[in-house]
């Protein structure tokens, strides 16, 4: 422990000096205003189209819109299922007089984080984690690091801890910036707006026997926790790649390809059942909170958590065994 703390400190400060965290903050600070504006346009457009500001009427119209599209015989089965679940979920909100999209900075944050878990957060984590080891090789500093009187596994462990701490910073900063920026447009309230959780998807139907109402801040807290777990998993995989592949560019390429393949897969794997063992298909844990339909039927939170944990554990084992045995020259 005595030797580990300075190592973690060293890693944290090194990452800080590399200005990677500023890059991430910059990316977030540029993207969120764009999405805030887009969201504003969408809600103004919708209001204009329907000609009413009463959310109950516009939500009801959206529901009936889905119902109409479902009635067409040309709709793909997957879509029909998705719309059927969506119709039942939204109608449940309406039946209980809860606005699922009460416009506020908190609601925007909730929705943004939910959509960010699949690709955006993993990419940000990758910016930090994918060259943690390989850059030491590239710059030749790996020798300096390994000639210190500490065991190799401690060096690697300190990198893992630094990654873990930075992932927490990224997720928190994402939510905070999202709230601050979008709040300027949508208002800073909404912490106590009612939110429904506990929808269980069963095929094309939804089970509402466990649906409960919670304050929105609780939803966001849980949501961020789940996003954090996904972020740490991505960090572990990226670190493993960075241990195995000595070139930073190649490591980043591998991670990018994997993540993007994952989003494509999630949209098309529904008929390929064994694809559910890929970690990329399981990254969106937030859907189990909001009650969205999972990419493959039968997936649930415990399954996804198991898959993610097994992948993370395997990547940790691989990187430790490679890192402690590899010849450095």
């Amino acid at each position: 422990m005595n030797s580990l703390l300075p190592l973690v400190r060293n890693e944290m400060l090194k990452l800080w000096k590399k200005k990677r965290f500023f890059v991430i903050i910059g990316i977030i600070a540029v993207l969120i205003p764009i999405f805030t504006y887009a969201q504003l346009r969408v809600s103004l457009d919708r209001q204009e189209q329907i000609g009413t500001s009463d959310w109950r009427v516009s939500l009801q119209q959206r529901i009936n819109d889905y119902a109409n599209r479902m009635s067409s015989p040309r709709v793909i089965e997957e879509w029909r299922k998705w719309m059927s679940v969506e119709v039942q979920r939204l109608q449940y909100y309406l039946d209980h007089d809860v606005n699922p999209e009460e416009p506020s900075g908190v609601t925007f944050t909730r929705e943004f984080v939910k959509n960010a878990v699949g690709l955006f957060v993993p990419l940000l984590v990758m910016v930090i984690a994918s060259d943690l080891v390989s850059s030491e090789h590239a710059q030749g500093t790996i020798k300096l690091l390994l000639t210190r009187p500490v065991s190799r596994w401690k060096v690697l462990l300190s990198k893992y801890l630094a990654m873990l701490l930075y992932v927490s910073l990224i997720v928190t900063a994402l939510a905070a910036l999202c709230y601050i920026i979008s709040g300027a447009v949508f208002g800073y309230g909404g912490w106590h707006a009612p939110t429904l959780i506990g929808f269980q998807v069963a095929g094309a139907d939804i089970d509402t026997s466990n649906v409960n109402m919670i304050a929105q801040w609780r939803f966001i807290l849980m949501e961020l926790g789940l996003v954090f777990y996904t972020g740490v998993l991505v960090g572990c995989i990226a670190l493993m790649v960075s241990v195995i592949v000595r070139s930073t560019a190649a490591g980043m390429g591998i991670m990018l390809a994997t993540l993007i393949a994952g989003t494509i897969l999630s949209n098309m794997v529904s008929s390929w059942e064994s694809a559910k063992y890929f970690f990329m298909v399981n990254m969106d844990l937030v859907r189990y909170l909001s009650g969205d339909i999972p990419p493959i039927e039968g997936m649930n939170l415990s399954f996804s958590l198991w898959v993610l944990t097994v992948w993370a554990a395997a990547s940790i084992i691989v990187s430790f065994s490679v890192f402690t045995r590899r010849d450095v020259y």
Binding site: S168, T172, I197, L221, L224, G225, L226, F228, L289
Partner: peptide, 17 residues
Amino acid sequence: ACLLLISGLIYGISTIL
């Protein structure tokens, strides 16, 4: 931040399960 997120994670998992 890490402690906050871990507590959110535990809270979320227990609420869903």
